[in-house]
């Protein structure tokens, strides 16, 4: 039996006066999936996240969240948590008091005490639990916002730029939490401008531009649909590698070698099949490959390729 999607949107349109923020959006997010939302500023990401959180109602179209149709009233079904435009925290309360007040609001006795400690521990804020939120950095605020969302044991978690301001340790905590939630069946929809985060976390992405979807689907599909990418190639023998690359069909070598971390790097442009061919040639000729990575991530390249024409056409 098919499990219903956590989010099912069809033909969602939302306008603010003359401005069309969302124009006929279709979106599906499966349970247990981390779904990335990408788009340039003003693309409609925050508006879409706001609809999922029940902060606004669509002008037209249908939206089902956690198998519950969402009407015009400003409310989201139980099981939805998250934040847009940064978490809402009360600076005069400590981290623990912020969570305790929220737990008391929800009436979840279970969420109090141990639940709060657990949420703080998951996001790595146990040591500052007694500190007022007023003194928190942006990254700490993001993590506390995530802890607040965790308290409600969400089945759909909606996060707007959750990686903003995170240091490596904070990022590790947040990624760990999101991955574990997804493994437990929670659907996560997050927006970010950090493509590396999205590539590390998301199984599917949706790219928005000027209120419309220009791509939605798995990252692998995005890479396959995309045009050629530039790859940085570090080998044990740059001269031989250049010669082999020049001789490989559909592989284009950049004019001059680039310095990369103290070594001579080759930049080649190719589709994935041609790149596979090049790697096979290099190995066959005894050239060791020390690094092969896209100069610009596939998602970022796709994002730029798909959104720039739309932005230019504005």
């Amino acid at each position: 039996m098919d499990t219903p999607p956590a989010v099912r949107a069809r033909g969602i349109t939302k306008c603010f006066g003359e401005v069309v923020a969302l124009d006929g959006i279709d979106l599906d997010v499966a349970q247990g999936q981390i779904h990335g939302l990408v788009g340039p500023n003003g693309a409609g990401k925050t508006t879409l996240l706001g609809l999922l959180l029940g902060l606004a109602a669509a002008d037209s179209g249908s939206l089902d969240i956690l198998d519950t149709p969402v009407g015009r009233a400003l409310t989201a079904p139980e099981g939805v948590a998250g934040f847009v435009d940064g978490p809402g925290l009360y600076p005069s309360l400590t981290a623990r008091q912020n969570l305790a007040a929220l737990a008391a609001l929800r009436g979840g006795r279970r969420a109090r005490g141990a639940g709060i400690d657990d949420a703080l521990d998951q996001v790595g804020l146990t040591d500052v639990a007694a500190d007022k939120a007023r003194g928190f950095s942006l990254g700490m605020r993001q993590r506390l916002g995530l802890a607040a969302a965790l308290l409600t044991r969400p089945r759909l978690l909606v996060l707007d730029e959750p990686s903003n301001g995170l240091d490596p340790a904070g990022k590790k905590h947040v990624h760990g939490v999101l991955t574990r939630l997804a493994a437990e069946g929670t659907a996560v929809v997050l927006s970010s401008h950090r493509m590396d985060d999205l590539e590390a976390l998301c199984s599917e992405v949706t790219i928005l531009s000027t209120g419309r979807i220009v791509f939605t689907g798995p990252l692998s599909k995005l890479a396959a649909e995309n045009s050629e990418l530039d790859y940085r190639l570090l080998t044990s023998d740059p001269q031989t590698a250049r010669r082999i690359a020049d001789g490989t069909a559909d592989v284009h070598v950049a004019g001059s070698a680039a310095e990369w971390r103290g070594a001579e790097a080759l930049v080649v442009r190719a589709l994935v099949p041609a790149l596979d061919e090049l790697v096979a040639h290099l190995v066959r000729d005894g050239v060791a490959i020390r690094e092969l990575a896209p100069v610009v991530s596939p998602l970022e390249a796709a994002f730029l390729a798909l959104t720039e024409p739309q932005e230019a056409g504005r």
Binding site: A58, D59, S60, G61, S62, T68, P69, V70, G107
Partner: peptide, 24 residues
């Protein structure tokens, strides 16, 4: 396309439990 904005709201049974005014 169904315009949910003009459709009836979600059935009460499917709605979330309320945060009471007292708790708020």
């Amino acid at each position: 396309m169904t315009a949910t904005a003009t459709a009836p709201a979600a059935p009460a049974a499917a709605g979330p439990p309320r945060v009471s005014v007292a708790r708020g």
